[in-house]
């Protein structure tokens, strides 16, 4: 896993980001000022359920509030999961349509790299990013914290009861109550409830200045085979 160069976003950069992978769906528009700090931010979030119907409305509201025209942005960012299969597809399809219509650069990030960015850890610390995989399992990936976190392994599925064995002292994800309730964690483990992630995704892409890969918009990170029953009759 190579370390991408971290830098200050180019002055004036403006991005639109959508996260439909997380339990809290969010849309954010950000513009960076000349000093490299975020000058404008508009963000909307809501619960995953019913988000598909209103996602484009959120995009419209966020752009209006930020005073940005879609065509004047510098790029479009989606989050490709893991998460609700339908949620992932709606978010990625929405960004793909905007990308095709505007020819703006676009890319998609994994939920893990966005969570690692949101972990609030000291640079160099190890963090465990977790996404609920249901039935007592979690999708996890370990990162070294930093402005641009660096993955230490590949995403994998693990049962809750084995997560404390990873020996990581900071855990970031959504709805961590069930995880924390497990008795196996070392005392002093830090828990970070991530909340809305769209703005964080935009920040990470701005820091890295990409990489822009619109092909990722058609590659959701399902990490699970489709549920197919035995052939009916």
């Amino acid at each position: 896993m190579s370390t991408p160069p971290a830098s200050s976003p180019k002055p004036g950069t403006a991005l639109l980001a959508l996260d439909t992978a997380s339990p809290t769906v969010s849309v954010a528009a950000l513009r960076w000022g000349a000093d490299g700090a975020v000058a404008v931010v508009a963000e909307r979030s809501l619960a995953q359920r019913r988000s598909s119907a209103v996602l484009l409305r959120l995009v419209d509201e966020v752009l209006r509030e930020a005073g940005e025209a879609l065509g004047d942005l510098d790029g479009l960012v989606a989050v490709r999961g893991p998460g609700s299969f339908t949620g992932l597809r709606v978010g990625l399809a929405t960004v793909l349509g905007l990308h095709q219509a505007t020819a703006l650069p676009a890319t998609a990030l994994s939920s893990f790299e966005v969570l690692a960015t949101a972990a609030g850890a000291v640079d160099g610390d190890e963090v465990l990013t977790v996404v609920d995989a249901r039935r007592g399992d979690y999708f996890v990936q370990r990162y070294t914290a930093g402005a641009v976190p660096v993955a230490l392994d590949e995403p994998r599925r693990m049962p809750l009861t084995r997560l404390p064995d990873l020996g990581v002292s900071r855990v970031v994800g959504h709805s961590l109550g069930a995880l924390r309730a497990d008795a196996g964690w070392a005392p002093g483990t830090r828990w970070v409830e991530a909340g809305a992630l769209a703005a964080t995704a935009a920040r990470l892409v701005a820091r890295r200045d990409g990489p822009w890969d619109a092909g990722l918009l058609t590659r959701p990170l399902y990490l699970e085979a489709p549920a197919v029953g035995p052939p009916a009759r």
Partner: peptide, 14 residues
């Protein structure tokens, strides 16, 4: 939802 999301955002973007 895939086709509708694509169609909505294409129209909006255009």
């Amino acid at each position: 939802l895939v086709g509708l999301s694509l169609g909505k955002s294409l129209a909006y973007g255009l």
